[in-house]
Design a protein around this nucleic acid. Structure first.
Lengths: 158, 158
DNA sequence: ATGCTCAATGCATAATTATTCGATTGCGGT
DNA sequence: ACCGCAATCGAATAATTATGCATTGAGCAT
């Protein structure tokens, strides 16, 4: 089932048939009927992207309910969702693919980085609340493992 | 078109036909074809609610792109989305209808209330980050215009 | 081992949603 | 006023998605 999430996170998918094609090409055997049911269960939806097309997307809320095992095993998956990170004072803002902020936030929580008090996830943004004596360099280092090719900017306000 | 947003914000809608019914009962004349197109334009989607049913919901991202005029003219609409507010220290938590946090947050941003540093929206919750010297009473006053019948609680933590 | 229950799945189809294809309307520009 | 031209809409239809029903198989108690 994770495969479905992975597919819609990685590719621009506009119909269940496309997902089906991907799935079968990866060796899964199922029909559109089961796919529809799986999608319902995973709370994945086909949403207009504002550019005249449709795209399958994970529903905003359901993410928070994912099981730890599911998440921790999906490190590669997460890696493709986190886009950038930027610091500001005692906070950091982590940008993700649309809809995946909660997944990434959970991942960050689970990795218990020293100096990170907690996270708050929107749709494509994660707010990290840092301890006042946080070592930003350390945090950057840990997080940058998940965010290849993107330089982290550090900005200090007040 | 605002009417569509209002309907899906107010009622539990599971199909376009239901929206259509609501619309016609309000005097609008259109067919499912146009409705589908409008819905696409408004970026409204049919998402599984995790309880075995479907529900039409505003897409999480699109909200941020709404035009000021659209927003400011939709004050009535917003008013029906904000549910309650509660203060704690330098923060305030504003509860909204599911899926509307972003809209409300944007509204708050746009109104530039003194003392509000910024907002972070989840799905049905908006976090307001306040300045340390913020005048909570003022903020309450401004915001309470949008939140009728709900007493604001003010709690001070450390 | 047998039979029962329950969950999962495919098939076929219903239900729903998107889009094509005219037809119509409104709007400059001449 | 007349002519494109573009936008918009409805009807019909295509495309897509959800689901009723039957079947299968796993787990389990007898």
């Amino acid at each position: 089932m994770l495969a479905i999430r992975e597919i819609i996170a990685t590719k621009d998918i506009a119909s269940q048939d496309e997902i089906l094609t991907e799935l079968t090409s990866r060796g899964f055997e199922l029909t559109q009927a089961t796919l529809s049911r799986d999608i319902k269960e995973l709370q994945i939806a086909k949403v207009p992207d504002g550019m005249g097309r449709y795209r399958y997307r994970i529903a905003p809320n359901q993410v928070a309910r994912m099981q730890p095992t599911e998440l921790t095993s999906g490190a590669d998956f997460i890696r493709s969702c986190a886009l950038s990170i930027e610091f500001s004072g005692q906070m950091a803002v982590l940008k993700t693919r649309p809809g995946y902020a909660s997944v990434v936030a959970d991942m960050v929580d689970k990795s218990q980085i020293d100096g990170v008090m907690g996270t708050l996830a929107g749709d494509d943004t994660v707010l990290l609340v840092l301890r006042t004596n946080a070592n930003n360099a350390l945090i950057t280092h840990v997080l940058s493992q998940w965010i290849p090719d993107i330089e982290s900017k550090i900005i200090h306000n007040a």
